[in-house]
Deep mutational scan, measured.
Amino acid sequence: MATGGRRGAAAAPLLVAVAALLLGAAGHLYPGEVCPGMDIRNNLTRLHELENCSVIEGHLQILLMFKTRPEDFRDLSFPKLIMITDYLLLFRVYGLESLKDLFPNLTVIRGSRLFFNYALVIFEMVHLKELGLYNLMNITRGSVRIEKNNELCYLATIDWSRILDSVEDNYIVLNKDDNEECGDICPGTAKGKTNCPATVINGQFVERCWTHSHCQKVCPTICKSHGCTAEGLCCHSECLGNCSQPDDPTKCVACRNFYLDGRCVETCPPPYYHFQDWRCVNFSFCQDLHHKCKNSRRQGCHQYVIHNNKCIPECPSGYTMNSSNLLCTPCLGPCPKVCHLLEGEKTIDSVTSAQELRGCTVINGSLIINIRGGNNLAAELEANLGLIEEISGYLKIRRSYALVSLSFFRKLRLIRGETLEIGNYSFYALDNQNLRQLWDWSKHNLTITQGKLFFHYNPKLCLSEIHKMEEVSGTKGRQERNDIALKTNGDQASCENELLKFSYIRTSFDKI
């Protein structure tokens, strides 16, 4: 039985969820670079991206490699990797027998973001014989899940209580170790020597080791999670996991709180800001991140802002960003909400898709409305799209047979046209069989910064309504002859009103 693990408890099935942008060198404390989270699957090609990484700022997932063999891993080693800020997950990587050479110096898994409450997941690794993470000293947050690894031993010899604050939620089941077939031998045991430290858990006094050649490092209890030197002297209180010299914040392997210019500090002093819960960055760093993602459509890219001495992905609820200094300031009234469309555009074809934009005031991208039916549609669209004030790209209304009016965009005031449909149009209306009105132009103002209007096959939309939009939106004169079809717009509506004058002759039985 794995020490510190839980057996036999019912657990939810383990679901495996399925960018080499360097964020800056980590400095003297770390020998390499800070790398983003990685999802490495199918083959070993991307694994080489770990070569210079000291910190993975995010998670590391290595999974679904069915053609790899043990010899493929023999020359692979990433000794610079010290810390993973989120979680480490391995799933069905064939041929991998140990992690001792792959990650010989991995010391800390912070667990800032977890995989279903777990910071370390080893699942269905069919050839893994031992973990071998002999320098792993601290899992700051989260638990361990090690399950269905039929060859995995050296679990009962690990004292997880020396690595985690609590072992109650560890789930370590259905491994070879369960069948008591392992016969784990710690260093020196074969020669009758006791080389590794022994600890007591559940009444068992057991030597602690990761492999037959690597003991588990056990520091004096007084050192807590700070770690200790090879001689057993406690590291500085700002260290986490390990250090090369005692009581020196510049000799830590990793930091308990924050890293700044080669030393570990309790908090980031001005003019620095907390970033990702582990390091200090200056304003320029946060500003660069903001600008890199301002026009990016890459998933996970955030326009970072500053709030409460932190550089964070977005302002919290009730705050909006001051564009001059990136500071989050309290909103006066309802907060603006910028919604970034991942692929640059979004099609609204149902109430469900409209709900995804609920509360958005600025759309960074283009909207395509293609709704053919739905219950209580006008009210639903207004509830979900009615706060949109600005669209950076274009607005396209296409084959939306259920629409009679666009009044559900009740606050839309600006279409920038930074991206144009077919390279020309910022407003595009095609084949809307029941569209009769755009907006009530006596109450609604709309500016279209650039781009043209396109109207074709809107049989109940009168040309007068379209011409009014040209005047109000500032697009009059931009359109070419064929942009607004004269014969297919309003051709099934009563669009022309003329005053009919009647004269009559009164007659009676005795007068003409």
Rank of each mutant, 00 (worst) to 15 (best):
E207T: 08
N135K: 12
G192Q: 15
I56Q: 00
H302A: 12
L131A: 15
G232S: 13
H226R: 14
L120H: 00
V121S: 09
P270V: 04
L102K: 00
Y87N: 01
P220V: 05
D177T: 14
S323V: 14
L63K: 02
P197C: 08
H48P: 04
S284M: 10
K292S: 04
S225R: 08
F103A: 01
D248T: 03
V34A: 09
Y171G: 13
C328A: 03
C315R: 00
N105Y: 06
D75W: 06
Q276A: 09
T85Q: 10
G132E: 00
C311A: 05
N175W: 12
Y304W: 15
I139A: 02
E207P: 15
P270R: 07
M83S: 04
R46L: 07
N105E: 06
H59T: 07
E151F: 04
N295G: 14
R256M: 08
I306E: 05
L164Y: 04
S98T: 09
K80A: 09
G188P: 08
D288S: 10
T194N: 15
C243R: 00
G37S: 08
E180Y: 09
H302Y: 11
N42M: 12
G300S: 08
R69F: 14
L240R: 05
H307K: 09
Q276N: 11
R46T: 02
C186F: 08
S284G: 11
E180V: 09
L76T: 02
I158W: 04
Y273R: 07
L44P: 08
T199Q: 10
L29S: 07
D177V: 04
I84Q: 00
N195L: 13
G58P: 00
L60P: 00
I146R: 01
E71G: 06
N42W: 09
L136R: 01
G318S: 11
I84R: 00
D86K: 04
N138H: 11
D248M: 04
F66Y: 14
Q303R: 11
C53H: 00
I56K: 00
Y319A: 11
C293L: 06
G32S: 02
V206G: 07
M65V: 05
I109P: 00
C239K: 01
C215G: 09
Y87F: 03
N42V: 07
N117C: 04
Y272G: 02
C301I: 00
Q216A: 14
D261H: 15
D165Y: 14
Y30K: 01
V108G: 01
S143I: 04
F73G: 07
L50P: 01
E57P: 00
W210F: 08
H48W: 06
N322S: 14
P249M: 06
Q276R: 08
G183I: 07
I40K: 00
L90I: 10
S166M: 15
L29N: 14
K80S: 09
Q276C: 04
Y273K: 06
C215L: 06
Q276S: 13
M38W: 02
S112T: 11
C280H: 00
G183R: 07
H28C: 14
L96S: 03
K224F: 07
D177P: 14
C186L: 04
V55Q: 10
E49K: 11
P36F: 10
M321S: 03
C243F: 00
P220M: 03
C239N: 01
F123P: 00
A190K: 06
T199H: 14
K191A: 06
C182K: 14
C264Q: 00
C196S: 09
C234M: 04
D159E: 12
S323I: 05
D288T: 04
E33K: 10
M65R: 02
N295H: 14
N170H: 06
I40G: 00
Q303F: 14
Q204P: 15
C53P: 00
D178L: 13
N202R: 06
S112R: 08
E180T: 08
C186E: 03
E180F: 05
L81C: 00
H28I: 06
E57V: 08
E124I: 00
G142R: 01
R74F: 06
Q216C: 08
I163G: 01
K224G: 12
R298H: 03
E231P: 14
M83H: 07
G192I: 01
S77T: 13
P270G: 09
E207S: 06
T329S: 11
N117L: 06
T229Y: 03
K310G: 15
N282S: 15
M125C: 06
F91G: 15
K191R: 09
T140R: 08
N282T: 07
V144P: 02
N309A: 09
G333D: 11
C315P: 04
T68N: 01
D261P: 04
N175P: 13
E49H: 08
Y319W: 15
L50N: 01
